[in-house]
Deep mutational scan, measured.
Amino acid sequence: MQNSHSGVNQLGGVFVNGRPLPDSTRQKIVELAHSGARPCDISRILQVSNGCVSKILGRYYETGSIRPRAIGGSKPRVATPEVVSKIAQYKRECPSIFAWEIRDRLLSEGVCTNDNIPSVSSINRVLRNLASEKQQMGADGMYDKLRMLNGQTGSWGTRPGWYPGTSVPGQPTQDGCQQQEGGGENTNSISSNGEDSDEAQMRLQLKRKLQRNRTSFTQEQIEALEKEFERTHYPDVFARERLAAKIDLPEARIQVWFSNRRAKWRREEKLRNQRRQASNTPSHIPISSSFSTSVYQPIPQPTTPVSSFTSGSMLGRTDTALTNTYSALPPMPSFTMANNLPMQPPVPSQTSSYSCMLPTSPSVNGRSYDTYTPPHMQTHMNSQPMGTSGTTSTGLISPGVSVPVQVPGSEPDMSQYWPRLQ
């Protein structure tokens, strides 16, 4: 039975679970980093996980050691009161100082060594604690504590007292930064006198190289990059290397530039699409467009005044059976039934097929058609009795279509119309 579990990581490298990497692998990681390889490249070359490479390099940059820390136990506290007071002093002298600059000053002034120097995250935590204590304490208590930490007896009751030896409130920041720059020169002199001055200088240079600022491109470089971006948004590694040799930039910087440029292009394309949609959409909808001609068919113009009344309900007709019959029939052209047409008796099958359309009241044959006459024609229609054979009435077949029909004066039988409509 094995005491430890061995495995293979996602890159194909072998590791022992819970145990640190061998010293030979750690040394190779540092050597590759000094030669300029990126952590992701080191991870692929040595088949070590990216997190492990970053952790080893980060500890090497901070402490200069590649040895693993002790497994188990607690780390001794490195942010001692003396170190905290120095950090507060540096922050007062130059409020814009960075944590890694404070760390360098602690090393250069001999406050800490490589073994007990606090990390950048520890210094940031100390600065946050100082800021929170400043908010919790009152103004007087804060000034007393700062005077105690600074070891001075001057008056701290006013704002300019934060910067000793100065009279203009805006000047101390520059003086403090100048003092810090002077301390940086002392850093070089002190570290050069040490035993491991060369190694420390190499480590600091490598650290500065990794902690780079934003790349500033010249106009020629920007023009070359934009020209390549117009050709393709995704250049391959050969195109990037050719462009890197042409404009004297690292291939990694060119790759990052193209990634950022593609993101910018997507944002601009989104804005262009929004403007295009806004320009195509009308600002207001016309009133006429809300009524579609496919839904509402136009009603033909009436030929006679009587045809303006298109349904039985508008003429005072309360018989719903006839109203439904007229509205359900398709529109037909106007025609006239003459008196000489043969009077065919209704076929029983045809009569039964339209039995649902006729009223059940037996008085329908005896009703006159003056009910369908509009009010303004009552006088004219009353002067001509319906009993004469020459009287013409208008029957409504569908809305908007008038059918003048000659009705025999002897017997106005409704059943004569249905064979004609089939």
Rank of each mutant, 00 (worst) to 15 (best):
Q2C: 11
Q2F: 11
N3I: 10
N3Y: 08
N3E: 10
H5V: 11
H5P: 13
S6H: 15
S6N: 09
S6D: 07
S6E: 10
G7C: 15
G7Y: 09
G7M: 13
G7Q: 15
V8R: 12
N9M: 02
N9Q: 00
Q10G: 05
G12I: 03
G12R: 02
G13T: 02
G13M: 01
G13V: 01
F15R: 05
V16Q: 15
N17C: 14
N17D: 04
N17T: 09
G18S: 01
R19L: 05
R19W: 05
P20A: 06
P20L: 01
L21S: 04
P22F: 00
P22A: 05
P22W: 02
D23Q: 13
D23P: 07
D23F: 06
D23V: 13
S24C: 12
S24L: 09
R26Q: 02
Q27M: 14
Q27P: 02
Q27D: 05
K28W: 05
K28G: 06
K28H: 07
K28C: 08
K28A: 10
I29M: 13
I29Q: 00
V30W: 02
V30R: 06
V30K: 07
E31C: 07
H34Q: 11
H34T: 14
H34G: 11
H34F: 10
S35L: 14
S35T: 12
G36Q: 05
A37T: 11
A37H: 15
A37N: 15
R38Q: 03
R38S: 05
P39E: 04
C40K: 06
C40T: 09
D41E: 13
I42C: 03
I42A: 01
R44M: 05
R44L: 04
I45V: 10
I45M: 14
I45E: 09
I45S: 10
L46V: 09
Q47Y: 06
Q47T: 04
Q47P: 00
V48I: 11
V48R: 03
S49R: 01
N50H: 06
N50G: 07
N50W: 01
G51A: 12
G51P: 02
G51F: 03
G51H: 00
G51E: 04
C52N: 00
V53G: 03
V53I: 09
S54F: 04
S54D: 02
S54K: 03
K55N: 03
I56D: 02
I56K: 00
I56N: 01
L57G: 04
L57R: 02
L57V: 06
G58D: 09
R59F: 04
R59G: 03
Y60E: 00
Y61I: 13
Y61G: 06
Y61P: 03
G64K: 06
G64H: 06
G64N: 01
G64R: 04
S65E: 13
S65K: 06
I66P: 04
I66Y: 15
I66E: 02
R67G: 06
R67C: 07
P68A: 09
P68R: 03
R69N: 11
R69Q: 06
A70I: 08
I71Y: 10
I71T: 14
I71G: 13
G72D: 04
G72M: 06
G73P: 02
G73K: 07
G73S: 05
S74H: 04
S74I: 03
K75H: 05
K75C: 04
P76I: 06
P76N: 05
R77D: 05
R77C: 01
R77F: 03
R77W: 01
V78H: 02
V78D: 01
V78T: 00
A79W: 00
T80D: 01
T80R: 07
P81E: 10
P81R: 08
E82N: 10
V84L: 04
I87V: 08
A88G: 14
A88S: 10
Q89Y: 11
Y90L: 13
Y90N: 06
K91F: 00
K91L: 04
R92S: 13
R92Y: 15
E93C: 09
C94R: 15
P95C: 10
P95R: 15
S96I: 00
S96H: 12
S96K: 13
I97N: 14
I97V: 15
I97F: 13
I97E: 15
F98N: 04
A99T: 06
A99H: 02
A99Q: 04
E101L: 08
E101S: 08
E101W: 06
E101M: 15
E101Q: 15
I102W: 01
D104G: 09
D104L: 14
D104E: 14
D104Q: 13
L106M: 08
L106A: 01
L107M: 14
S108W: 08
S108D: 12
S108T: 13
E109S: 12
G110K: 15
G110Y: 09
V111H: 11
V111R: 10
V111I: 10
T113W: 09
N114W: 08
D115Y: 11
D115A: 14
D115E: 12
N116W: 07
N116A: 11
N116P: 06
N116K: 15
N116T: 08
I117T: 15
P118W: 01
P118H: 00
S119M: 05
S119W: 00
V120S: 03
V120G: 08
S121K: 00
S121A: 06
N124P: 00
V126P: 05
L127G: 12
L127S: 07
R128K: 08
R128C: 00
N129L: 08
L130I: 10
A131I: 10
S132F: 10
S132E: 08
S132D: 06
E133S: 14
E133Q: 15
E133W: 08
K134T: 10
K134P: 10
K134H: 00
Q135C: 09
Q135M: 12
Q136R: 14
M137Y: 13
G138V: 11
G138T: 14
G138W: 09
G138Q: 14
A139G: 13
A139M: 09
D140Q: 11
G141D: 15
G141L: 13
G141E: 13
M142G: 13
M142E: 14
K145H: 14
K145Y: 14
K145V: 12
K145M: 13
L146R: 14
L146Q: 14
R147P: 15
M148C: 10
N150I: 08
